[in-house]
Design a protein around this nucleic acid. Structure first.
Lengths: 169, 169
DNA sequence: CTATCACTGGTCACATTGTGCAGTGAATCA
DNA sequence: TGATTCACTGCACAATGTGACCAGTGATAG
């Protein structure tokens, strides 16, 4: 489960705020040696804490202004995976989960307009195994996807006598 | 609305796959001049297509193994915003939307376990203005959050006689 | 026909990167 | 107590990348 310390959190915070800064610059900002930053970044990546540094695309900037969450009910007997691979072929399906509760899958889709959303939904229900789809449209993103608070929460969660050698000096 | 062309899409794809490569390396891979890559990246950032290059954190690696989607019903009269700012104070609330349909808000939360999820939900319903919360747990992420297919879809969507000067040579 | 624009391909000085290494303090274990 | 391990510091080096330029070339738009 890795385990994160305060320096890791500050590092993540820094890179979240200014992603394109270099290792050297980061080390200056954090007041630690360059090698330390390098080692931390390597470890975070190795442990899978940072899944990557890829560009974050804003669908809205691409003309996909509408976001919707669609709950799918699947035909009994046909598994989830065939449906998922169908959905994966629809670019507008941004995310899909199997879920508990009355529905079987929840997916997040984007579309260029409400009318375009209809087209996307039609594609979804056309997938074999999908019985019903009920959708809710996102009117506004009150909280954009974020993980930074979680990072700091994970730090304070850690045992009081923090992580590893914990730094010298 | 900006508008994306095939080179932009390939650039985004490349940086998604290998986020830490430099401009020079990218220009080599794509077979274009370095200045072109620089200009493209600048434009994508300026137009808001790439919201940033921040590190993508995996909550699971931090011990937050449980993901849930919670639909909130709010008390009539109290607006969405006060609730949203309450929710923003809970680190485990990763995302929140106001939505159409029977519910008023949909939020995505993570927790360390099902038992821990209860704690998070308790915090949510404790927020003033929240009347009811119904949650579904994500059993598996069939499709992880992705935007790359969308980028390519946005390209092909573009007018056949693509974007700007469209390449010399 | 001319201006504008995106792109190429080149140069330059400068900063950063990857890498290796010795040394230090703290925790762990025998 | 002493040896080991680990994270960190601080330094050095060669290699590479960066931002900033430039002139030249097609294509597009007025």
């Amino acid at each position: 489960m890795s385990g994160i310390d305060a320096l890791d959190a500050r590092l993540i915070e820094l890179y979240t705020a200014e992603p394109r800064i270099g290792v050297l610059e980061a080390s200056r900002r954090l007041g630690v040696a360059r090698g330390t930053v390098q080692a931390r970044l390597d470890r975070l990546a190795r442990d899978g804490v940072t899944r990557g540094f890829g560009p974050e695309i804003d669908p809205a900037a691409l003309g996909y202004d509408v976001t919707a969450f669609i709950t799918l009910q699947l035909r009994q007997g046909s598994g989830h995976d065939p449906v998922a691979s169908r959905l994966a072929r629809i670019p507008e399906v941004i995310e899909a989960h199997t879920i508990t509760g009355p529905g079987d899958m929840l997916c997040r889709v984007v579309a260029r307009s409400n009318r375009d959303l209809q087209r996307v939904i039609d594609q979804i229900v056309a997938a074999d195994g999908v019985e019903r789809a009920s959708s809710v449209i996102s009117l506004a993103a009150q909280i954009r996807h974020r993980t930074l608070p979680l990072v700091f929460a994970a730090v304070s969660m850690a045992a009081p006598s923090a992580r590893r050698g914990q730094g010298p000096l």
